[in-house]
Design a protein around this nucleic acid. Sequence first.
DNA 1: AACACTTTTGCAAGCGATTGCATAAATTTG
DNA 2: CAAATTTATGCAATCGCTTGCAAAAGTGTT
Lengths: 317, 317
Amino acid sequence: MVTLNDVAERANVSKMTVSRAINHPEQVRDELRTSIMQVMQELHYQPNAAARALVSRSTRVIKLTIFEDMDTTEPYYMMLLAGISNELNRHQYALQLATSNSYQVGECDGYILTGIRQKDYAWVEQLQQPVVFFGRNQQGYDYVDTDNYQALYESTRYAISRGYEHLVFVGIDVDEPFEYDRETGFRDAVTESGVSAQLVKLANHCHVATDYVQQHWAEFPKNTAFVCASDRLGIGIEDGITLNGGKVPDDYGVIGFDGVLLNQIASKRLTTMQQPLEVMGRAAAKLLLSNIQHPHERQDQEKIIIKSRLSTAESTR
Amino acid sequence: MVTLNDVAERANVSKMTVSRAINHPEQVRDELRTSIMQVMQELHYQPNAAARALVSRSTRVIKLTIFEDMDTTEPYYMMLLAGISNELNRHQYALQLATSNSYQVGECDGYILTGIRQKDYAWVEQLQQPVVFFGRNQQGYDYVDTDNYQALYESTRYAISRGYEHLVFVGIDVDEPFEYDRETGFRDAVTESGVSAQLVKLANHCHVATDYVQQHWAEFPKNTAFVCASDRLGIGIEDGITLNGGKVPDDYGVIGFDGVLLNQIASKRLTTMQQPLEVMGRAAAKLLLSNIQHPHERQDQEKIIIKSRLSTAESTR
DNA sequence: AACACTTTTGCAAGCGATTGCATAAATTTG
DNA sequence: CAAATTTATGCAATCGCTTGCAAAAGTGTT
């Protein structure tokens, strides 16, 4: 292994000068610095991260902890990963992946947390490091989230504007803030417009939504639009409608939420509120890094809320 | 920060004894060890990873490097991640994520590489650490892969066994071993059966496949089955058929490959060869760890080949 | 009880880098 | 041009832990 000392000897300077050439270039004579850089190249010198971390107390590692069984394999997270990873790389931080139940091995400079449910907050509190949430929380932690209220409000308004007269909100059966926000967005939109509406909460799976439509088909007059809390539900609902002989989008409309399935299935063009997950990932990474670099500058909870964008397709007229 | 010394003082032993209690429990008197363990608990002692790595020359970090633009957001990788992450956690290793173009920050004990193309091998060779590939390679590196030949051979045979009389292989237009294997599996199966067949290679996107069917519709007599190199292509093909008024599965069959979209879209029940990605991820992690722990035991290239499983659904009769 | 063991614990050195302080060189100033 | 100041480099200590060897304690044998 090539060490600072090796470089120093070869460059005829002390290892301190080499160290400074790397970390504080302005403190080293230009000429000398370039010659040191060259030696580093020749020797393929790579600073030892462990040694650095030991003395500087900074690992340059950020952990993304996903509080959900990873075998559910949400493609959702993949886009998040892309955003986070890109941003961290720009700042020369490494991204480490962990799940809630994973053995806590290795240290890090901060955490990005996602998929957190109420029961997990105890775990979070015991963390002694900067934390940024992906998803709203009422505990005062900084977070990045999409505007769930706006998303459902807007998609509901859109459905109404397309002439659908009966609205169904198909939510997810969890007790979490994001779900309330979505529901409230829907409620406000229908109340304002005075159209008839109903709500249901289902487990977040296609077939559950399909079954629901099958079993309650009588409740849905023509001109019903289903505003869903996820694309999965949207797709399931659409199937249910088709199986009952309903015509999408002429007689029934469907709007999803997330937008993660969009690029994958060309035919299933679901109208949906698309979350800019890559952007949100970047934002979370950026916020965390800023918290790490300026530990005391911030007093209040920082909230970065990024709007979802309506992406219209063939499941609405 | 709680250090070994703190624990040692509190437990009235030297820090060496504490260290041994952790790393070589059998060398410490049972009674003493349990009392040390207790002190560690009380003080919430966590060994400093950097210090450990510095002296032991092992970081307990594995890097998964994905050689593909991550913004393509293949859900494929998510399942892989799950498998790798689970296995690494069992062995108390951390998983670090990197892309080919990401700044190489931090050290690791080994690499799992996926999405590698011919042009990337130069980068790999310069690595000075154990490497396991995800996907076949002819360079002598250990790898884990699904049996691409078997997968396409089997799905083609299946299509033939269901009575389809004209076979179309819809491949991906890349120059990689895995693609040849698939093609060869298809060729062998049709040759053996003597059915008529044709091949095409397309970019791996739904709409490309849909367009292809539209433009070549005249070439496909009734009783044609499309055997595809990915689920995306399969879904695109199916759409193309439907748009042309073809009946799936009665007059046209479609078989995909991967199985990653299966659980996501209930209605689009594509018959497909399902890769057990979680298992494959585990296998890759296990193989890498064994290479790390027994550096010289192995002479030849180790190949772990895991069969895909046919999952029949509504796109074949 | 004295010897040769084996088992258990402690000491000192060092992994590769960075921090604080001291020194040397270069530059400015009166 | 010597003194004061700025800029550039080097020295020593240290981060928390593990390795190699030495010392101490315990065990058994004659």
